[in-house]
Amino acid sequence: MSGLLAVESAGALTTVQDRGRAGLAHLGVPRAGPLDRPAATLANRLVGNDPAAALLEVTWGGLALTSDTGVWIAVTGAPTPVEVAGAGRGSGRAEWLPAGGRLRLGTPVTGVRSYVAVAGGIDVEPVLGSRSTDTLAWVGPPRVQDGALLPVGAPHAPPAPLDTPRPPRPGALRVVPGPRADWFADGALDRLCAASYVVGEESNRVGLRLDGDPPERVRAEELPSEGMVLGAVQVPPGGQPVVLLADHPPTGGYPVLAVVHQDDLWQCAQLRPGDPVGFARLRGA
């Protein structure tokens, strides 16, 4: 351990996330992990961390913390005003947070979730092999509260301040047909792709809930519970599709019409309630 972060304000929801808890879905444990993976990977790379290092996922900004030793930090994800020791700083690059200095995140200008990586990673005790907090069943470290003290690991590489982040290119969520596409009317997937949906208020780390045209089902019976994957587009009886995200239950009882390509899932982390969402068939699918 090489120091502590003292959290003064955790904002609306701040959790610790690493790559998630693999291999336990059959016991009912969600995988968790950052919702915007490319942003989390970039933040770790900027401060010289391994991509598996644990960092903070900050929802709607509002995080304020200090370091007792001084530490390299990087903020990525939703574009957010970043203040380091009283001075405005950019995001998407490594910054030195001096001992006693405060890092403060404002409210995101666009998007929802920001990522704060510190050199050495957040070194809280792992639970079942991961430092990710799952918000469905609360497996993992507790959510970050005001007043929390977070241990920081020992840095093992210098920060990498020059980087080429992925260009943010939001667009339609590309999908392939799901395993239960045959539970829906002919052409239901094409109509899903032609329609426009709106992000619902209830969206969270479990799923992106959409309002819009309900896909037409041809089989009305209940689906016996079956395993679910990240990005599955489930259609509950009400007809409003849900894109399953990192904290989704490992099994579910609603048919899956489509599956969102994993390269597009980061967008689901940054869409706000009320934002429009479209789907498009992945070429060749």
Binding site: A25, E226, G227
Partner: peptide
Amino acid sequence: LAAYARAARVDAEEVVPGARTVLFDG
């Protein structure tokens, strides 16, 4: 099937039995 697949160490990160399915993910 889930027990068979685990014993055979098939190449999957998750082997998730359901009511009448087995999901192989990863």
